[in-house]
Write a protein that binds this DNA or RNA. Structure first.
Length: 497
DNA sequence: TGAAATGTTGGGGCG
DNA sequence: ACGCCCCAACATTTC
């Protein structure tokens, strides 16, 4: 039974050749089949959104090209109800049989239902006599490796990250395979693979070119972005990362999500280029902390698997949301009348990305000013972000709503005018995404309704017509939010006391 | 990885 | 010269 030395490597969220432990292991055999399976019905709790699919499409093309350049070949399959292959498992079984493969390798994913699916696949393949080996290619530490002194998962970031750093002993990244000639399966009788285009990841209307211009896909692009960031932006990261009109952030989130660069590579490249001075070491530590938040989000989703759509703090199940379809739509479309919020929501819609500072502002606005359930925001971000990641999205929204681990306290309500003045003082970010305000003096850009009538007229703005009047009054909304969160406190004391 | 309300201090105008 | 008031400017507390 163990006679054949052929193997299968299953690409998932690790669309890279460098530092890919499962790929390196799989290539040790005689012949190796490289496979990607598009099975959106197996993703959960939601199928990938349209923006994420566009990026995936480009990523697969880039990967295919890179593999071909090394003499190899990528096999693509569509699996799902009504398809030739109903499940990912069916693809792997057919491929193993046709290719006479005795072992299958992949890098682990950590979304709750994917863990369940993968373990079922693993069990079925093992039962069929195959060897299955899985690896860590996505995290610095496995979620189960980091524990408090009592052996429990962490719920506060700082001690979590300290614990990670204490026992972080990372091997250097694995080099990309020198050749992939052993993966050239073109002469064999294999189940009919499809092309990347056949996966139908692109939408019918071509609205996505702007997205790809701004954020090119692929492993080479990921490394280019990393090097550019280290060279030009890291030194001022701690201040510039909050300025949405600047290139002060690394823009690595999408590449990390799709695994076009590994966190281990980011870690080593950052360390290698920034130990010379105290300042650069501090800047590096500040940046690597963000990698820490990424780790923390996976840690939390792994240990609290229902939190993608359920609050971690169960008292929030009774939160008095004011569900309102119209308010939600205004937020989604960037028509709230608060320029920094609208700029962010329009950046998201137009580019599939939103600057992190503005994600916090817009999320806070939806949850606190508009009292809409955080799950609605999470769904919208999931559908529109190209870097949509279940763990990171969940952490971000539960943090904003105050119902997650180490979350923002309920009384922390961002003032959109002050946030705008602090982080976009000249209104450059706003003017880029809310062009109807471009003629307005930056003095009034964060609160157009406070501008004198003649100033508005001169700028060609009619509030309520060319640009919305504020859909809620800031200080009234703030008071309402505080009152709503207050009821939660009372409920809690009523139960416990 | 807030903001607003409230408290304190100290300099200057003024009777 | 003195006390009184005003009010920035900053600090602290509260939500």
């Amino acid at each position: 039974m163990k006679t054949n030395r052929n193997s299968i490597f299953w690409f998932r969220q690790d669309l890279r050749l460098e530092d890919n432990p499962a790929l390196t292991a799989a290539l040790a055999g005689e012949r190796c089949y490289l496979v990607y399976i598009w099975a959106p019905e197996e993703e959960s709790p939601w199928e990938p959104g349209a923006a994420s699919r566009v990026f995936l499409h480009e990523s697969l093309l880039a990967l295919q090209e890179k593999i071909a350049a090394s003499g190899g070949r990528l096999l693509c399959f569509r699996a799902g109800p009504g398809q030739t292959f109903p499940t990912s498992l069916a693809v792997l079984q057919a491929l193993a049989k046709a290719g006479n493969a005795g072992s299958i390798y992949w890098n682990r994913r950590y979304e709750p239902k994917i863990i369940k699916r993968d373990s079922e696949i693993k069990a079925a393949l093992k039962a069929a006599g195959l060897t299955v080996e899985t690896f860590n290619g996505a995290l610095l530490k496995e979620p189960w490796q980091v524990k408090t002194k009592e052996g429990k998962p962490f719920q506060v970031f700082t001690p979590f990250w300290r614990a990670c750093l204490n026992e972080l002993d990372l091997e250097p990244p694995l080099p990309a395979p020198a050749t992939l000639q052993s993966t050239d399966s073109s002469s064999l009788e294999l189940p009919r693979a499809v092309t990347v285009a056949d996966l139908e990841l692109l939408p019918a209307l071509n609205w996505y070119e702007g997205i790809l211009d701004r954020y090119p896909a692929g492993e080479s692009e990921a490394h280019r972005a990393l090097e550019h960031f280290l060279k030009h932006a890291l030194a001022n990261y701690s201040l510039d990362r909050d300025k949405p009109h600047r290139q002060g952030v690394s823009r690595l989130s999408t590449y990390l999500h799709f695994g076009q660069v590994s966190p281990r590579s980011v870690w080593h490249r950052t360390k290698a280029s920034n130990i010379a001075t105290k300042e650069s070491a501090e800047a590096a530590a500040c940046f690597l902390r963000e990698l820490g938040w990424r780790e923390f989000s996976h840690h939390l989703l792994y240990h609290f698997p229902d939190t993608a759509d359920t609050p971690l703090r169960k008292d929030f199940l009774d939160f008095p949301w004011h569900k309102d379809e119209e308010l939600l739509k205004s937020w989604q479309k960037g028509r709230t009348g608060y320029p920094i919020v609208d700029a962010g929501m329009r950046e998201l819609w137009q580019t599939g990305i939103m600057h992190n500072r503005v994600r916090m502002i817009t999320a806070s606005f939806l949850v606190k000013h508009l009292l809409q359930p955080w799950q609605e925001g999470a769904r919208w971000f999931w559908d529109t972000l190209i870097d949509a990641d279940l763990a990171q999205n969940t952490l971000g929204w539960q943090w904003t709503a105050g119902c997650g681990a180490d979350a923002a306290p309920y009384f922390r309500i961002f003032n959109p005018m002050l946030q705008g003045e602090k982080f976009d003082p000249d209104g450059l970010y706003i003017k880029r995404y809310v062009p109807e305000l471009a003629g307005l003096d930056s003095k009034y850009i964060h609160a157009p309704w406070t501008a004198p009538p003649q100033v508005l007229e001169k700028a060609g703005i009619t509030l309520g017509t060319t640009y919305p009047a504020p859909i809620v009054d800031h200080s009234e909304a703030r008071q309402r939010a505080l009152a709503a969160f207050q009821t939660l406190k009372e409920l809690k004391t009523a139960v416990t006391g």
